[in-house]
Nucleic acid binder design. Structure first.
Length: 261
DNA sequence: CGTGTTGTTCAGTT
DNA sequence: TAACTGAACAACAC
C-alpha cells in the first residue's frame, strides 16, 4: 500500500499525537528494528515528547525532543494510533505507548523496518540517495531530471534517487492521465509531453495527498487494477498488463501509444 | 504447489 | 564510471 500519499496519511496520524510523551515501548518483533536493540530503543524513547513528524518520499521521520525514529513501510506496512483497549493486530511489530493511546507500526511482510537516528549526520547518511520529494518538484526540474535518462519513463519516475515518493500505482496513474506509455524512454519526451506529464503528476499528488492514500475510485486506474478484465475509465477500451521497470504496469493501448520498437 | 504483491537493494551488465 | 536490469528479500492470499 504505502507510496507517498499513504505515508503522508501516516504522517498526519502521527501528527495528531504531537506533544504527547512516550510512556513505554513494546517491541513485538525485534526483526523490524534495523539498527537498534529493543532495550536500546526503549532507553532512547521512553519519557521523550513527540514533535512534528516529517515525510520525505516514502520515509517518515518521527521527531521527538530526543532522537528521531525513521519508518519505512515497504509494500505492506501501516501506522495507526489506537486506544490500548483495541485488540492488537496480528502484524503489529512495534508499539509506542503514549499518555493516551498508542502508536502501532504494523507490517505483514517486513520488507523494510524502523531505524533510530542518533544525530544529523546519521540522518543525512540514511537519506542521502533520495531525490527531491515529488510534491516539491517543479516542471523545469522534472524536465531536467528526465532529459538525461535513457530508461523507461516509468522506471525513472519510480527511481527514488530521481524523485522520491512515487510507487507503482501512483506512477501508472500519472502516466495514464498524461496519456504516455510507461515504456517510452524518458529522454524521448518532447516539451509538450513533459508539460502534460507534469500536469498529471500535480493532479494525482493533489488528490492522493489530500486523501492520505491512493484512492480506488471511479475514474481511476487503481479501481480497475484487480478486475479480471480491466477497462480504461476514459475510453472504455481494454487495459493491458505488462512488465515495465520490473513491475506490473497497467495501461491503455488506445490512450497511451506504445513507443515504436 | 504454483503465481503474484503498492518497495528497496545488490550483483551483474551495458 | 554511471546508468540500467533483474533477482532476492518476507509473508502471505489465491
Amino acid at each position: 500500500m504505502p507510496e507517498l500519499a499513504d505515508v503522508e496519511g501516516f504522517r498526519r496520524t502521527l501528527e495528531g499525537a504531537s506533544g504527547h510523551r512516550v510512556r513505554g515501548v513494546d517491541v513485538k518483533d525485534a526483526s523490524v528494528l534495523r539498527n537498534v536493540s529493543p532495550s536500546g530503543l526503549e532507553k532512547a524513547l521512553v519519557g521523550k515528547r513527540l514533535r512534528q513528524p516529517e515525510r520525505h518520499g516514502k520515509w517518515l521521520r518521527a521527531r521527538t525532543d530526543g532522537p528521531t525514529l525513521l519508518f519505512h513501510f515497504g509494500m505492506s506496512g501501516a501506522l495507526t494510533i489506537e486506544s490500548s483497549r483495541e485488540e492488537p493486530h496480528r502484524h503489529d511489530r512495534l508499539v509506542l505507548r503514549l499518555d493516551r493511546g498508542e502508536v502501532r507500526y504494523r507490517d505483514q511482510r517486513k520488507l523494510q523496518g524502523v531505524w533510530l537516528i542518533g544525530d544529523e549526520a546519521d540522518e543525512r547518511r540514511m537519506m542521502r540517495d533520495l531525490g527531491p520529494d515529488a510534491t516539491h518538484v517543479d516542471r523545469k526540474q522534472l524536465q531536467a531530471l528526465l532529459g538525461t535518462r535513457r530508461a523507461s519513463i516509468k522506471a525513472v519516475l519510480m527511481d527514488q534517487s530521481v524523485v522520491a515518493g512515487l510507487g507503482n500505482l501512483m506512477t501508472d496513474e500519472v502516466l495514464w492521465r498524461a496519456r504516455l506509455h510507461p515504456s517510452r524512454k524518458a529522454s524521448d519526451l518532447d516539451d509538450k509531453e513533459v508539460a502534460s506529464l507534469y500536469r498529471a503528476l500535480r493532479q494525482v499528488l493533489q488528490k492522493t495527498v489530500a486523501a492520505g492514500l491512493v484512492p480506488s475510485e471511479k475514474g481511476w486506474l487503481t479501481e480497475q487494477r484487480d478486475k479480471p478484465e480491466p477497462r480504461c475509465p476514459r475510453c472504455r477500451g481494454p487495459l493491458q498488463t505488462s512488465r515495465v521497470g520490473g513491475r506490473t504496469s497497467l495501461c491503455c493501448s488506445r490512450c497511451q501509444l506504445a513507443p515504436r520498437a
